[in-house]
Nucleic acid binder design. Structure first.
Length: 276
DNA sequence: CCTGCTACCTGATGGC
DNA sequence: TGCCATCAGGTAGCAG
């Protein structure tokens, strides 16, 4: 499901539910969903996970890239949704449907759900301890993300623009949808090598990334994530998408057909007329 | 170091 | 209606 805007909206909606609440009990229903803590073995990971979250109060809910982070009194609880992971809220301790990991509080139970089992939950002592998070690049909606910073990153890479945008070590949180959308808005061909982009094109790309993510975030905020309705996030997305998943349909800019190509094993959508 | 490819999983969908 | 191939909003690990 989620790229940066979706995870950010999830974090915001989760705060009033769990901040200040104690995890009375953690339950691992499908052990595959638990990532062993850094440096530890797979064997026994679920049991250690349960032991570490039990009795811990959730102090702060945060986000880094596409990672959702629940800061506990001791250590952090890290959730990554990959393609299809999501959160479900139950009003009691009774859960139903496919749930991989459950966190019981006095107010209800938070369920981490991913039937495809690509997503992971893990406990770590700190953010720096999680290998995937340690290498993350700049947060695109933070003050550290500037045209100058983006220009430096683009200059030091030979990747095609699309792959650059998907690379979490450069800019964190952009995925397949918002990369295509950003390039369309910036009128840049996904196959361009990033070190050859001009200052003017860099400026356009910068504005497009920030703009696309802001719009998507607003879209994710209302209606706010509903943890009782697993389909919440899909609603309203079509409103803002301009090229993603629109192969063969008319480009909203020029009326030419939207094309789909494969890059790095993933689909890229773009308009060859508008994007040069 | 950089870049590109594949594995990891399951379910939905479309062609025959 | 099966059955099979293909695709899915992501990342880690490995080879070159």
């Amino acid at each position: 499901m989620p790229e940066l805007p979706e995870v950010e909206a999830i974090a915001e909606a989760l705060r009033p539910l769990v901040e200040g609440e104690k995890i009375v009990r953690g339950r691992v229903i499908h052990a595959v969903a638990v990532q062993p803590s850094p440096g530890e073995q797979k064997r026994g990971a679920a049991e250690r996970f349960v032991r570490r979250v039990r009795g811990e109060m959730v102090r702060v809910v945060g986000r880094r890239g596409k990672y959702l982070i629940l800061e506990l009194e001791h250590g952090i609880l890290v959730l990554h949704f990959r393609f299809d992971g999501q959160l479900i809220w139950f009003d009691s301790r009774k859960i139903s449907g496919h749930v991989d990991v459950a966190f019981e509080t006095r107010r209800g139970t938070l369920g981490y759900v991913d039937p495809r089992h690509l997503g992971r939950a893990q406990w770590a002592s700190s953010r720096e301890d999680v290998p995937g998070m340690r290498g993350l690049g700049v947060e695109p909606l933070s003050r550290e993300f500037t045209t100058v910073r983006l220009a430096e990153l683009l200059k030091s890479s030979r990747q095609p623009l699309k792959l650059f945008l998907l690379d979490q070590r450069k800019v964190a949180g952009i995925g397949n949808i918002y990369s295509s959308e950003s390039m369309w808005r910036a009128r840049l061909d996904p196959r361009r090598r990033t070190h050859r982009l001009s200052p003017e094109e860099t400026q356009r790309l910068y504005k497009s990334i920030v703009d696309v993510l802001h719009r998507a975030l607003e879209c994710c905020r209302k209606p706010a994530p509903n943890f009782r309705d697993p389909t919440w996030w899909f609603r309203g997305l079509e409103r803002i998408l301009r090229v993603y998943d629109r192969e063969g349909e008319k480009c909203r800019g020029c009326g030419d057909k939207v094309r789909r190509i494969e890059q790095g094993g993933r689909s890229t959508y773009f308009c060859a007329q508008c994007q040069k």
